[in-house]
Design a protein around this nucleic acid. Structure first.
Lengths: 163, 163
DNA sequence: GCTGAAAGCGTTCAACC
DNA sequence: GGTTGAACGCTTTCAGC
């Protein structure tokens, strides 16, 4: 895991902020904000993409607007050792799984689920529980989302985040 | 919470998928995929934005590449009743807080944190704990991210998600 | 609500500093 | 690394259906 050995300067960081805030901005528009010409911005963005710093551009969608009103975190405990690759294989086909993390503590994996409603959630939970090797699950139902900025706010560590 | 009383047809859904997958696509390009002209796509995207279905466009960034290698979920329990608005007020100024949810169960709030390293995480945790009314916190350290597709995969509930 | 055309921009690349 | 300039394609608006 030897990441971040790349050199990302202040201008790169500023460009990333612009794109995180508004991914469809033109290069010219970003250039005006960071003090560069459009081709210079494009060249930097191309480099940031090929280096894997920027992994893509996506539309933010309100899940509730699409009918996905339920949300939960499920701590899954497996019997014996289950490698991360196997966990991905088990959870990846389940569309209700938004994210999953291996974690410290009693459980092995923390799964972030989204569903249309509680009935749909129960169905997705059963699908997780039915996999071979699942010892137990503990669900924490989300009542409301208080804050959600995902990667927004991240800058190059050491420059500002400690604020 | 009376959402989703809007009419989102199959073409809207397809356009959303296109934009979630690749937010910088041209309207013309999307039009080719969904069988519409560029102006028709633009009109639909404008409508989806003003209806709040699409909340924005953002760049996906690899936090590890920016030096943010640590990640944790912190369950916070408050003494007495703390309304969601107050929780937002307390957590919003902390840049390490990626997301926060009010939850069922023992704790009141589940906080998703990102930090450069463990020392930085400890510092952010202390900032959360130092707020008035915090009775206790329980941290679950993320060892690795097994899956992360955020909103990717969401469609209109009832059409495909149960798959 | 869609299409088609036209004017104005944005993107992209080569050439150069 | 950066800029400029030109070709090409995209965006956006509006008339027409």
């Amino acid at each position: 895991m030897e990441h971040s050995s790349l050199q990302i300067d202040k201008i790169d960081s500023h460009i990333i902020s612009c794109l995180v805030a508004e991914a469809r901005s033109s290069f010219r528009e970003i250039g005006q904000q960071v003090g560069l010409s459009a081709p210079a911005v494009k060249r930097r963005v191309d480099r940031l993409r090929s280096d894997g710093v920027i992994t893509g551009f996506t539309a933010r969608v309100d899940p509730a607007m699409l009918g996905w009103t339920a949300q939960a975190f499920v701590a899954v405990t497996y019997t014996g050792n289950v490698p991360p690759g196997r966990i991905r294989q088990l959870l990846s086909p389940i569309p209700e799984v938004i994210a999953a993390y291996t974690v410290s503590g009693d459980a092995d994996v923390l799964v972030h689920l989204r569903a249309a409603d509680m009935a749909h959630f129960e169905q997705a939970l059963e699908r997780i529980r039915s996999a071979a090797g699942v010892a137990r699950t503990e669900s924490t139902i989300v009542l409301s989302s208080v804050l959600d900025r995902q990667s927004v706010g991240l800058t190059v560590a050491g420059s500002e985040p400690a604020g």
